[in-house]
Design a protein around this nucleic acid. Structure first.
Length: 544
RNA sequence: GUGCCCGUAGCUCAGCUGGAUAGAGCGCCGGACUCCGGAUCCGGAGGCCGCGGGUUCAAAUCCCGCCGGGCACGCCA
């Protein structure tokens, strides 16, 4: 908010001086003031004068505004602003007025968007790798809502195809083991212990009915049973990590309801498919510099690519103006051909968006292992939440930017869960709650919105300035699709608050006005922390 | 081989849409208010920002080339 005010003032001043161009207003290193602009540096080529000259003119003209306590020139030609306390105080006032609405924007103007994440083969428990994706996705959904989008989240279940057959067979092998009948788990089958659990449950229900018996009907039965069980695990885990879904979408349904055929027909009409080696191919190369890809296999079944095109066709049909898919970086090769397909269907370039996140690598005994559900080599998301709690889990994943590869050391995660910065932020919130109790005990009457003009010392200024930057942090997170911008902001705010708290007595019955002012400031901090934690899906405890 | 991502403090990571002396947390060393929550605060040690060129008034940031790591190049998903 203050940044915009400064920008406007500088723009006006430049206009008076006869120029118009783009420049930045930033937060400089502390010793240079509250805000800083490079307008004079950028302006050198427009004014055809040395930056410091221009800066001098700017400063001269800007000093007249009472929003600024001080305007100075520094370095090669920066103009630095020290902001008047009244301007900072207006931020506190705004927060107290808008409460949890503070920071809300209407960038989306109600545009209907979808964010798809957590999509997985329903072949085993969700792992910490899924956790990362779920948290990124869920936080983005909350940010989009904040920015005025009509956003839905959705999880896509890859419940069609070969891997599900393998799952069925693997379950069947485990089931037979219970009756002392030994079969081999298929080479690409699923070896995790969790199938033993499901097998036991199944055996309790149906006894040895399917012992050593295998045909299409049995396969179908095992497939459905495994899917049902695993799907229900997944849903429980989603709930637990506080990411419910508006929709759960089944890949299989696209085949069953004819969407696949419909899309195929459209592509055929546009002459974008051809037959070769008994399979049906899509002319990817007509659109991007990639090889053509198979849509329908020789045996007549659709590929993952095919169903994915159909899936996105359906998303479009459902009225989403934009969709964001959150994928692991191993899917990056899939992007160009999907873009080609979207183009082929005549969709807007903005429609299809992918957010890639880097991998989660598992570290065990000093060795790095790629997690693999197939091999049974993973740490489940539930296991993690059992050990470190939901808040710390969410915060941990939100904190690391999607583009950074994540090395996950379970031992460390557990041992150090108390070091998670989430507690630092939550503590600031709890502390503020406690301040208000303290005020009550000491008989201080709190009047919201009063005495703000008493806030002006360095710590108070620092907190107010930080509060003002919340909107920037949100926008930053939105434009960069990066939840980490929120966590680092909250840590900064918590730090500024703890500092203020340590160096100032907030509740002091001997000076009720100052106390009231500081309580108001604390309340503003509390509102913003709560809001930030809400966006992260992390609780804001009143005591801890 | 081709393409994409990554390389910043002992560790985990910010900073990357170019700006002033490169930051935080953890770990390590040393400190703090007789009082509102010490899950806090302050100070210190610790960096050829992978390497080499280039562009620029200005490069961790942009471009090129190397080196190192990850991933993808299926009628798997």
């Amino acid at each position: 908010m203050i940044r915009e005010i400064i920008k406007k003032r500088v723009e006006e001043t430049l206009k008076d001086l006869g120029q118009e161009y783009d420049f930045k207003v930033e937060v400089p290193p502390e010793q240079f003031g509250d805000f800083s602009t490079n307008a004079a540096l950028v302006g050198a080529k427009y004014f055809k004068r040395p930056p410091r000259d221009i800066a001098a003119d700017l400063a001269e003209n800007l000093r007249q505004y009472e929003d600024f306590e001080n305007v100075e020139i520094a370095g090669p030609g920066f103009v630095n602003f020290k902001v008047a306390p009244s301007l900072f105080q207006s931020v506190v006032k705004k927060i107290l007025q808008e409460k949890e609405g503070f920071g809300k924007k209407n960038l989306g103007k109600g545009m209907k968007v979808q964010i798809e994440y957590g999509s997985a083969n329903p072949t085993g428990p969700l792992t910490v790798a899924h956790g990362r994706q779920i948290v990124i996705g869920d936080v983005l959904v909350r940010i989009f809502k904040e920015m005025g989008y009509d956003v839905e989240n959705e999880v896509y279940l890859n419940d069609a195809g070969r891997q599900i057959s393998l799952l069925a067979r693997s379950l069947w092998v485990r089931y037979n083991e219970l009756f002392g009948v030994s079969h081999e788990i298929p080479e690409d089958g699923y070896r995790g212990e969790y199938l033993v659990e499901i097998a036991k449950k199944l055996a309790e229900e149906v006894g040895d009915t399917y012992k050593d018996q295998w045909d299409e009907k049995v396969e179908e039965f095992f497939r459905e049973y495994a899917l049902k069980e695993i799907r229900s695990w997944m849903m429980k885990t989603f709930e637990r990590i506080r990411s419910g879904f508006d929709n759960v979408f089944s890949e299989k349904s696209l085949i069953e309801d004819g969407t696949v055929d419909k899309v195929l027909e459209i592509l055929r009409e546009k002459d974008l498919v051809y037959e070769k080696d008994g399979a049906l191919w899509f002319k990817v190369s007509d659109f991007v510099d990639e090889d053509d890809k198979v849509l329908v296999r020789k045996d007549g079944t659709p590929t993952y690519f095919m169903t994915d095109i159909a899936y996105h066709f359906k998303k479009h049909e459902r009225g989403f103006a934009r969709v964001f898919d959150i994928w692991g970086s191993d899917h990056h090769g899939h992007i160009p051909r999907m873009k080609a397909a979207m183009k082929a269907l005549g969709f807007d370039d903005d429609f299809f968006n992918v957010i890639l996140h880097q991998f989660v690598t598992l570290r065990k005994g000093g060795e790095n292992l790629r997690m693999s559900t197939r091999a049974g080599r993973f740490i489940s998301l539930d296991e993690l939440m059992d050990q470190v709690g939901v808040d710390a889990t969410r915060y941990f994943f939100a904190r690391i930017d999607p583009s950074t590869p994540l090395i996950f050391d379970m031992d460390l995660a557990v041992k150090r869960s108390m070091d998670n910065p989430v507690y630092y932020v939550q503590y600031a919130h709890a502390r503020i709650c406690s301040l208000f109790k303290q005020a009550q005990t000491k008989g201080l009457k709190f009047i919201e919105g009063e005495n703000l003009d008493l806030l002006s010392n360095e710590h108070e200024r620092a907190v107010m300035k930080r509060l003002d930057l919340f909107e920037d942090a949100l926008l930053d997170a939105f434009y960069n699709l990066s939840p980490a911008k929120i966590t680092s902001y909250l840590e900064d705010l918590a730090h500024d608050f703890h500092l203020f708290y340590t160096h100032n007595t907030i509740v002091d019955p001997d000076s009720p006005e100052v106390s009231n002012a500081r309580l108001n400031l604390s309340l503003a901090v509390q509102i913003v922390i709560k809001k930030g934690l809400d966006i992260l899906g992390v609780s804001a405890p009143e005591r801890m």
